[in-house]
């Protein structure tokens, strides 16, 4: 399997006035297609920062970040945006659905931005994904009418609707109770297995980590090490196709 993310000696520093805050201090790692990776580490260790760099929403101070074989530092803002749209799906800690759009429209949104599919094809695609996350009956609802877990499932559907190679999820379960969080991880895992989509997610939760193929351990902006695959929890029934 080819590598989808390749990071080499990346440093990221934030400037707070005159103070320089080092968030990543020479991180190197490699993620292969189809992997289900967790990034773990204490608060402030640089998990979000690392995901931002991989997700091309931010650029490294030094070092090299390659996503889907492209060096993100050489891309223009526009190109990075296109890269995000076409290759990367995002799942956020606080779901980040567009409040004024329906569930269906939220999921359809990336497709509309791509503008490749006809309306009918879009509908089929969106409905199929909503089906997979078990929310096809809620297509017309507004996000505010859904529970936290349901919202995050919509977010999962949105992240996957464009069939990206890579999905990034920054603490996707942090705002959910543990059962619901478990549910989401199961869903992601199922999709990873069924579609071969690469997932990288961050978490503090050891139980959540345990589902990952591999866990990268971050501390104070540095990779402490990579632990091998751990036994996956069973995939919940409702998340199965």
């Amino acid at each position: 399997m080819g590598s989808i993310v390749s990071i080499d000696n990346v440093v990221k520093e934030y400037h707070l006035g005159k103070v320089i805050v080092p968030a990543l201090r020479g991180v190197s790692l490699e993620v292969h297609e189809g992997e289900f990776i967790s990034i773990a580490g204490p608060s402030g260790s640089g998990k979000t920062t690392l995901l931002n760099l991989i997700g091309c929403v931010d650029t490294a101070t030094s070092g090299k970040v390659e996503v889907a074989g492209r060096d993100t530092a050489t891309l223009t803002e526009r190109q990075r945006t296109s890269l995000r749209l076409d290759t990367i799906g995002f799942i956020f800690q606080s779901f980040n659905l567009v409040a004024v759009l329906s569930v269906f429209q939220n999921v359809e949104f990336p497709l509309l931005l791509q503008g490749r599919l006809k309306a009918a094809d879009r509908k089929a695609q969106v409905m199929s994904l909503l089906d997979q996350v078990g929310l096809s009956s809620h297509a017309k609802h507004r996000p505010s009418e859904l529970s936290g877990g349901q919202r995050q499932r919509v977010a999962v559907a949105r992240a996957l609707v464009t069939e990206p190679k890579l999905v990034l999820a920054d603490e996707p379960t942090a705002n959910l109770d543990s059962a619901t969080g478990q549910n989401i991880i199961d869903l992601m895992k199922a999709l990873n297995q069924r579609r071969g989509t690469t997932f990288i997610f961050s978490t503090h939760d050891a139980k959540v980590m345990s589902h990952a193929n591999a866990i990268w351990q971050l501390a104070d902006g540095k990779i402490l090490g990579k632990s091998g695959p751990v036994a996956g929890a069973p995939i919940p029934a409702e998340a199965r196709p």
Binding site: T81, F90, F92, F109, L113
Partner: peptide
């Protein structure tokens, strides 16, 4: 801003 940032992250261009 949250919504706008989300749209940008998901892949909306500035012009959009």
């Amino acid at each position: 801003t949250q919504t706008l940032g989300t749209m940008r992250a998901i892949g909306a261009q500035r012009s959009f």
